[in-house]
Amino acid sequence: MGKSRSLRRIEDTTMWERFTGSVSKIGHSISSRIAFAGNLAVFSLSTIFWLIAKGPRRETLTSCFYNIGVLSIPVVMLTGTFIGMVLAVQTYPPFKAVGLETHIGAAINLSLVKELGPVLAATMLAGRVGSSIAAELGTMRVTEQIDALASMGVNPIHYLVVPRFLSCLILIPGLTLFADLLGVVGGAFYSIKLLNVDWSYYWEWSRYAVTMYDIFAGMFKTVFFGAAIALICCHQGFHCGAGAEGVGKAATSSFVISFVSILFLDLLLGIFLDHFQVVLTGARSGGVV
């Protein structure tokens, strides 16, 4: 039995509404992401403007240096040590299988200095410092402390964001250096003392594989990681939703967005630095391995 015209119209309308509803949701999702990117760009430019125009005050910078730099040293060193040792554990068997166990120093140290040291130091910074920045600024937003700053004629971006941004930017290369150093020590300790790899070959192959350019490349990347972490986490804190739930979401999303950005930047900068090395020296590092 055929359906009446009016019933068919209702069914058609419902399907059409579902379709337009889905399109609308996709459009809304895309536009909100574009708006987020635009908002973050304006926030970043404003931070750079205030950094250049006025610079941070010494007392705000000192406390940020302490919280972001000094208090992060132990956790970064611990992470570096364990990663160095884990790399030794994982690289030894395949290298041993082909009789190249004396080369593991090159593999461990090159991957530490170029990739794992910078990325792990940045990840630890995003986890330990970034979430804390987002939660602190988010709480200040929720309790109207940011509005209070603005109402007293103090620009919140200048007072709160600039010192955190500058601290992350300046201190992350140093933290990475700590992670690298302890990673090298951890990897060497495990390889030489526990896996009985000949120490002279271990260091000789390492010295041969790791160039100054590799150390520079690792440090160079961290500056971008530090800037991204500070801007993303401060932005999340500044635009935090209402109440405890809003602060919790800001802390979580700040880490997730920072982490994804670190990996994305790592890929882009890795490709750029690789090509730059070829242009500069005519060869890529690590060929010995």
Binding site: D147, A148, A150, S151, M152, G153, V154, N155
Partner: peptide, 9 residues
């Protein structure tokens, strides 16, 4: 920012 210093909130 300067104008706001003439307010108390």
């Amino acid at each position: 920012t300067e104008t706001r210093s003439h307010y108390g909130f």
